[in-house]
Amino acid sequence: SAPCFSNGLPKPTNVTFSSVNMKNVLQWNSPESLRGAEVVYTVQYLIYGQKRWLNKSECRNINRTSCDLSYETYDHEEQYYGRVKAIWGKHCSKWAETERFNPWLETQIGPPVVALTPGEKSISVVLTAPQKWKRNAEDTSISMHQIYPNMKYNVSIYNSKTSKKWYKFVINYTLELSLLESETLYCISVQVYVPGPLRKTKPSEKQCITTLKDKTSELKV
């Protein structure tokens, strides 16, 4: 792109990586004083320990304030920096940099997929671990469980009849909740737990399901 004069155009602010399951998006705020002006942005990234900043061609002279760097930051054992500068006509700002970004440590681990199947006095819960972001749709999926082998699930179970909510820690992918009350609404949410550093994790959406009518009670009446 045409050279620009770096002469005091204000820098973008709050340049950070937003990361969920290793989908790593660089985002920033436009400079206060340039809001509304026709400002474009250019992004670069650096692999910690390497010399050169690298261009992200799809994020050259863009007018949005985010840039998906998941492909470039795919190796979660590396650490990275991102930077962005504002360009307005012939003028451009200095680079604004992120902190050092460590995907393994800082990505938010999303919730598992939760499948519920009601029985008369039971609910079977089948969990599918969140998947790491994929470079290509046809790539084989990498489960976040492979990246965090000591990953567990904290399952919360709410009994709407007794208004009691209790938790059950689960290591594998299936949980059979038995001897429940029939024809009762139960609400279930599941959150990943990984021992070690403090991590951001997101609970699954609460799913409510009603246990079936108890056929044996019909026979006995």
Partner: peptide
């Protein structure tokens, strides 16, 4: 890490 400007050495 904010003080570490030597990003080319790990």
């Amino acid at each position: 890490q904010a003080l570490d400007h030597n990003t080319e050495t790990r």
